[in-house]
């Protein structure tokens, strides 16, 4: 095998093309915090709910969460614009190199952060190193807790399991997970387009959160296609990347202000 010397290096990391491939914009000015994206994500990606106690202790499995803070004091108080926080699919993802088993490598083809559930051993280093804190860990076997089951003919029947999306793996305890930009939808759209001998066109599909969002705050698509809506929005003057100063090259652009 020929060793490409460009892959061996002692200096800083190679800058990936700053734009990436898939990207998202979130208009914080119109986000109402209605949680439809969170619910849609949960339904699409087989997220488990964790119950009252664990949820309050910081163990929710939300892949997207809506952050709000306060400004000022009563009566001049304002809730800050809602900030839906999800995996930013960084070009320089801090979570990636720290995994000892390559469970969260970078996809060169899709330029996304992959999470390989069945490779994960649960060191949780990636979650520590994520500046956005968007990774969630399966602290327990939430899905197969007998509490959710009914005993039918001596067997535990989990009625809720009927709803599982067959395109998405169901995770068990000890595994890290995070937003995938609905990679199952990306692949499906690409397969369809390939079968029809064309490219995926802008708006042909979108992520579950963007699809549900009643305020149309979320836009998803190819940021490297300059005519696409998401690309144009991400170059909007209101566009801001979260924690940009860390050089993580996030793929999500927040439209701030008005």
């Amino acid at each position: 095998m020929k060793i490409d010397l460009n892959l061996v290096g002692a200096k800083g990391a190679i800058a990936e093309a700053a734009e990436g491939k898939w990207g998202m914009t979130i208009d914080q000015d119109v986000c109402t915090g209605c949680q439809a994206c969170v619910a849609a994500c949960a339904m699409e990606n087989n997220l488990s709910f964790v119950g009252e106690e664990d949820a309050g202790y910081g163990r929710t499995q939300h892949w997207i969460r809506i952050e709000r803070f306060w400004e000022g004091e009563y009566p001049e108080i304002k809730a800050t614009p809602n900030q839906p926080m999800l995996c930013q699919q960084c070009g320089h993802a801090p979570c990636e190199p720290v995994c000892p088993v390559f469970a969260t490598p970078h996809s060169d083809a899709e330029q996304l952060n992959l999470q390989v559930y069945n490779r994960c051993v649960g060191t949780r280093y990636c979650a520590n190193n994520c500046p956005y804190q968007v990774r969630s860990f399966n602290w327990r076997d939430y899905h197969i807790d007998p509490f959710h089951a009914n005993m039918v003919d001596g067997k535990l029947v989990f009625a809720l399991h009927n709803q599982f999306n067959p395109d998405v793996t169901v995770r068990r305890r000890g595994v890290m997970e995070k937003c995938t930009f609905c990679i199952q939808r990306i692949h499906k759209a690409q397969d369809t387009a390939k079968a029809e001998g064309r490219d995926v066109f802008d708006g042909e599909f979108t992520t579950a959160c963007a699809q549900a969002c009643p305020a149309d705050a979320i836009t998803f698509g190819r940021v490297d296609h300059h005519e696409s809506l998401v690309s144009q929005l991400s170059h909007h003057e209101r566009g801001v990347k979260h924690l940009e100063e860390l050089n993580t090259l996030p793929r999500v652009t927040y439209l701030k202000g008005a």
């Binding site: 190199p97 720290v98 995994c99 000892p100 088993v101 390559f102 490779r119 994960c120 051993v121 649960g122 060191t123 949780r124 280093y125 860990f137 399966n138 305890r173 000890g174 595994v175 890290m176």
Partner: peptide
């Protein structure tokens, strides 16, 4: 500390069934 301790041998510097070696970028 490991989430799936029964798979901790995946950390050893040996290839797995799919000939994938561990990640030597990782401080762990």
């Amino acid at each position: 500390h490991l989430g799936r301790v029964w798979l901790s041998y995946w950390l050893l510097p040996i290839p797995n069934q799919r000939m994938l070696w561990p990640n030597f970028h990782s401080p762990l």
